[in-house]
């Protein structure tokens, strides 16, 4: 008898023994389906409402940008990233990614307007939401690199050489990080996925 067959027989005997020996489990207190839902989040109406709101805000921001009124675009997006979100302190992946993308957009807009500190703040908030190495996190680093590059140019014009050098270094570091994240995204995409 091969080792495999011996293992099968042994397992079958053990299973029978366990069935015989195990006492009948006492039924646990009945829990409702709703109680189960609390531990297993799902795509629900609240999430859809948030996503729809985000879509509407981004479309409005597109229109504002098309009219060259970046201030209005910033106002709209700022409202979006401040509003209460599904999941509260622990939002789900979709909410975190949409917010991270919105914060990246805000940072990019503020960078263009020369509000570098505000832009840095938005990137920082975004990075706290997009913690996994995804394209959303990669974009935040790219925006950070771009903002720091703009800061570098502004500081150099003001002849603040040490400040400019520091901004340049931050820009390079952020862009390197963006490249590393994109490489990691590609590497994960190449990993073997389970067969459907």
């Amino acid at each position: 008898m091969s080792s495999f067959l011996r293992t099968v027989v042994l397992l079958a005997v053990c299973a029978l023994g366990a069935c015989k020996a195990a006492p009948t489990p006492a039924p646990a207190p009945l829990r409702s389906v709703e109680a189960c839902n609390e531990v297993a989040p799902e795509i629900d109406a609240v999430l859809m409402a948030f996503l729809s709101k985000a879509r509407a805000v981004h479309l409005q921001a597109d229109l504002a940008e098309a009219d060259a009124t970046t201030e209005e675009a910033v106002r709209l997006l700022d409202e979006l990233v401040r509003m209460p979100v599904p999941g509260g302190e622990h939002p789900g992946p979709e909410v975190r990614e949409v917010l991270a993308d919105s914060l990246a957009r805000l940072a990019e807009l503020q960078g263009r307007r020369g509000n570098f500190d505000a832009a840095r703040g938005f990137v920082q908030r975004g990075l706290k939401l997009a913690t996994e190495p995804t394209q959303f996190r990669g974009r935040l680093f790219e925006v950070r690199g771009s903002v720091e590059k703009q800061a570098f140019e502004a500081l150099r014009e003001r002849h603040d050489e040490p400040g400019a050098a520091a901004a340049k270094a931050r820009s390079i570091a952020a862009l390197k990080e963006a490249v590393a994240i994109q490489e990691s995204v590609i590497a994960r995409a190449l990993e073997v996925e389970p067969k459907r």
């Binding site: 297993a40 989040p41 799902e42 795509i43 999430l47 996503l51 985000a54 879509r55 981004h58 479309l59 921001a61 597109d62 789900g92 992946p93 979709e94 909410v95 990614e97 949409v98 993308d101 919105s102 990246a104 957009r105 990019e108 996994e132 995804t134 394209q135 959303f136 990669g138 974009r139 790219e142 925006v143 771009s146 963006a178 994109q182 995204v185 590609i186 994960r188 995409a189």
Partner: peptide, 25 residues
């Protein structure tokens, strides 16, 4: 269940620095 949306996008390409948010959402 809720999950990351990254599978919805072409992972070979990084997001553009500017724009594209509306299409993504």
């Amino acid at each position: 269940a809720p999950r990351s949306t990254e599978a919805l996008f072409d992972r070979a390409l990084a997001f553009e620095l500017r724009g594209g948010e509306s299409e993504r959402v």
